[in-house]
């Protein structure tokens, strides 16, 4: 494993940890303004943004942290179906 991919993996794990921390947004607990797009309370908009960020982090996770040995189904011996 190259040091570049190790570093990418580390950043992905840091980003995942950051998602959990950012989810606890006590800073938006007691207010609803500004209203994003004029109708979405800031506390909700924050969590919508977090959903989008989760998807982006997951994209990088599948790119850099996906188990190499498991990415191809043909490498497996097959399950019950191969026996029947």
């Amino acid at each position: 494993m190259s040091s570049k991919s190790n570093s990418a993996r580390m950043w992905v794990w840091i980003a995942i940890l950051a998602l959990f921390v950012l989810h606890q947004d006590f800073w938006f607990w007691d207010r609803y303004e500004p209203l994003v797009f004029g109708f979405m309370p800031i506390g909700m908009a924050w969590h919508v943004l977090l959903s989008i960020l989760t998807s982006i982090v997951c994209f990088f996770a599948t790119k850099h942290c996906f188990p190499e040995e498991d990415t191809d189904g043909t490498s497996h011996t097959g399950g019950e179906e191969s026996k029947s």
Binding site: L19, F20, T54, C65
Partner: peptide, 21 residues
């Protein structure tokens, strides 16, 4: 109110994706 989105939806997005992964 809107707190339910963070309580159930965005948290599920993070945790479910991690469980699948």
């Amino acid at each position: 109110g809107i707190g339910i989105y963070g309580k159930l939806a965005s948290s599920s997005g993070i945790v479910h994706a991690l469980c699948f992964f």
